[in-house]
């Protein structure tokens, strides 16, 4: 059986809220290392990969591999019934028909319980190769969100170019062009505002802004975001969570002329 207690229901609420417009029905794969999810969007252009490690829960118990097939709209309806500060416990039997969610208020004796009917989801897992990325950019998640939103006002696509001088986000559209360039930057007092660019070779790739703006819905999960790029491979956008858990998005590039 599965029994996993999250100190803050808000974490799962934010994760599901961030991915529910990209993917609809997902398997939450539970085993003794934690709760994982991998799902592609309908167009097979973007992929969500979530890992909530066992250490993110206290306690965490999962005796055998259980796939919980859940419709994210249904899950969101139930998660909205939780207060942000509530403690959340996920429970399921070994061959479950439902997943049980219990919300406990830390301040009162209120206890609420919901069951969500599970679905049989035949989901293909893609093998994501271990990649040594040519460029890794760590920046404030709010800054990345702002750049994507600003450039989307002008164009459907953004070119991301990383060189030793910095990272340039540029676009061109019907009304004109736009570009934002960031250089490495260290803010001693507010390290969350740092921009770090680790580069082994220059990279230039083009991506759809519609997807990037969608990924940025995860900005509330982490003050920083990591962009990993190599020429001619999908972009990795990673929001790190506590206890080495993470929410990752992969986006296939636009290629050719």
């Amino acid at each position: 059986m599965l029994e996993a207690r999250l100190e803050q229901a808000n974490l799962l609420k934010k994760v599901v809220d961030a991915i529910k417009d990209l993917v609809q029905d997902c398997n939450f794969d539970c085993n003794d290392s934690g709760v994982a999810l991998q799902a592609m969007d309908n167009s097979h252009v973007a992929l969500v990969s979530m890992m909530l490690k066992a250490e993110s829960f206290s306690p965490f118990r999962c005796d055998r591999n259980i796939a919980l097939g859940i419709n994210l709209t249904s899950l969101m309806k139930v998660l909205r019934c939780a207060q942000n500060e509530d403690i959340l416990t996920l429970k399921a039997e070994d061959a479950p028909d439902v997943v049980n969610l219990v919300f406990e208020s830390s301040e009162s004796d209120r206890l609420s319980e919901y069951d969500i009917k599970l679905m049989d989801i035949d989901q293909e897992h893609l093998g994501i190769p271990e990649t040594e990325y040519a460029a890794t950019i760590t920046m404030p998640s709010a800054e990345f969100q702002r750049i994507c939103r600003d450039l989307m006002a002008l164009s459907e696509s953004v070119a991301i170019e990383a060189t030793k001088d910095g990272v340039k986000f540029s676009c061109s559209g019907d009304i004109g062009n736009g570009a934002v360039t960031l250089r490495s930057h260290t803010n001693v007092e507010k390290p969350d505002l740092n921009v770090e660019i680790a580069l082994s070779e220059p990279v230039a790739l083009t991506f759809s802004l519609k997807y990037l703006v969608n990924f940025c819905k995860a900005s509330g999960l982490s003050s920083t975001v990591k962009l990993c790029l190599s020429n001619e491979v999908p972009l990795l956008v990673e929001y790190g969570l506590a206890s080495n858990s993470y929410l990752r998005f992969y986006l296939a590039p636009k290629i050719g002329d």
Partner: peptide
């Protein structure tokens, strides 16, 4: 204009 690739081109199916 460049064409949108899909992930199947890069990530292996099981």
């Amino acid at each position: 204009p460049p064409k949108q690739a899909t992930l199947g081109k890069f990530f292996a199916r099981p």
